[in-house]
Amino acid sequence: MNRDTLALCSIFLLLVLLQVMLFNNLYLFGFINPMVYLFFIVVYRFENDQTLFILLSFLLGFAIDFLSQSGGAHTIATLTIAFLRPIIIRSAFGVTSEIPSSFQNDSRILSKTAFLALLIGVHHLIYYSIVFFNLNAFYLILKNTLLTSVFSLILIALVSSLYKKLNDS
């Protein structure tokens, strides 16, 4: 087991614990729970195996669902976003030659922000669609998606920069 794998495993466990223990009980403004566990989807290297990634994402979502007593919304949203990640990478970072080997190895702020925003936005949209599961709650879904996305984005960006500093030092 090399260093990267070990780091990935510890991130996985740490994110699950953080999400379940801390962020699921945050209730900013009464209803916003930022989903910081999506950092795993961000930090998994772009060049690594996609099949394993889908499996791991499924496990991640399942763990969150299992520990937070929710139905299956986290699992479905995380699984789907993992499946769609190559498309999101292409649309955020441009042509194949410009795609970095991992999120950390890129310095273009705009592309990185676009990548994060797309990833989080799509994930939250799927998540809240499944949570409300009703066409009549369309505005509620949109409102929750937008507001939660903003906070998730900020938090994941913060965690990302922190992780980068930890790695560099």
């Binding site: 889908i54 499996l55 499924f58 979502g61 299956g72 699992t75 789907t80 499944i130």
Partner: peptide, 9 residues
């Protein structure tokens, strides 16, 4: 996996 999670849901 999506099918499994839907069943789960």
């Amino acid at each position: 996996l999506l099918g499994i999670s839907l069943l789960f849901l």
